[in-house]
Computed example of a mutant assay.
Amino acid sequence: MGIKIGIIGAGGMAAYHIAGFRQAGAEVVALCDPNEAVARSAAAAHGVSRVFGDAESMFAALPELNAVSVIVPNKYHAPLTLQALAAGKHVFCEKPPALNALEMAEMKGLAERNKRTLMFNFNNRARPESVAMMDYVKNGEAGRINSAQAKWVRRTGIPGFGGWFTNKVLSGGGALVDLLHMIDLSMYLMGYPEPAWVLARTFDDFITDRTFKGPWGIPDAVNGVNDVETAAHGFVSFKTGQALSFQISWAEMVQREEVSAAFQGTKAGGMLRRLYGADGVDATATDLCEFYTQDHGRSSNRVVTVESDPDMGRVRSARNFVRSIEGTESPLNTPDQALILMKIIDGAYASARSGEPVKL
């Protein structure tokens, strides 16, 4: 009997989750959202037969559900995940894992006690170029990775004004929590070491300037709250002696949007980078995936060629969740890693408030 999955949240990411689940052979049997009209529309678009207004009703009506995906504003990640885990379901949750490390620790603990799979949509790990680079790292070709640099910067990329993205109570933070993917990917390549301390600064320039709004996100909310950062810069030192620097922004005076993770190892280094064009992924956008070595005393830059993946690993990430439940693939991420990531995020915000390094 195949795995049956319910979707919590009718947002745009549902399409990728559903596609990945179905590729893995799972059956998507229900979709729930407090806005039932939106839920019905999304269910019809994706061929999902059952619609509910809340997760509790879905669980009561469909006890055969094996798993759920959680696609809601950040504030509700932990409550809905905990509710699903308590009901005996496996959970695939959108990023960030939670509002803070305390919530993440509670989610991790319940998943372990109930022996359920808990994963998060760190989809950039599933991009073909990331998979290829990780193969080099796993094979030992990079040696020990000493340092890495994580970057996701935008010039005009605030995802709406006054909505949940810019309201700290609902989001937990701004650009840092929204665009944490490259921090996660860099640490994934580094072996997800335990952090020792973090030093960070955040900036809220342009947070009310609508000329810095991006072409995605949600509509502006009249009289809404805009109390999160637009940029975060920081440095993490790990107990292993490794180091990571990061630059994350929605709105910052850069040439154009860049998404990249670079690393330097004892045998080789590497770079994964997308430079967006003026209109996103257009003719002026460029992708780079390179592995840097010294071959017989000469510098060698190895270009890594992979298949195109316009959804940036989102479908493959969801597919991996189902196969992890089945035991046919290893999970691309774990609750232990998610907890480390949230400790770093919490520490970065604490450091920005105090102006001092924060021990983790």
Rank of each mutant, 00 (worst) to 15 (best):
M1Q: 08
G25P: 13
A26L: 01
C32Q: 00
D33S: 04
E36H: 03
R40S: 11
H46I: 04
F59G: 12
F59T: 08
E64V: 00
V68W: 08
I71G: 08
Y76G: 08
A78S: 15
L85G: 10
K89D: 08
F92H: 14
K95P: 07
K95N: 02
P96Q: 00
P96H: 00
P97T: 00
L102I: 02
E106H: 15
G109P: 04
E112G: 06
R116L: 13
F122E: 09
A132Y: 09
M134I: 01
D135L: 10
G157C: 06
G157V: 07
W164I: 03
V169K: 07
G172C: 03
G173D: 01
I183G: 01
S186T: 10
M190T: 00
M190R: 00
E194D: 05
F206C: 11
K213E: 14
I218F: 13
V236I: 05
A243N: 11
F246N: 03
A261L: 15
R274Y: 07
D282A: 10
D282W: 12
A283L: 08
D295L: 14
N301M: 07
V306S: 08
D309Y: 05
F321C: 12
V322E: 09
S324N: 12
S330L: 04
P335Y: 01
A338S: 06
M342E: 05
M342N: 06
I345D: 07
D346Y: 10
G347C: 00
P357Q: 02
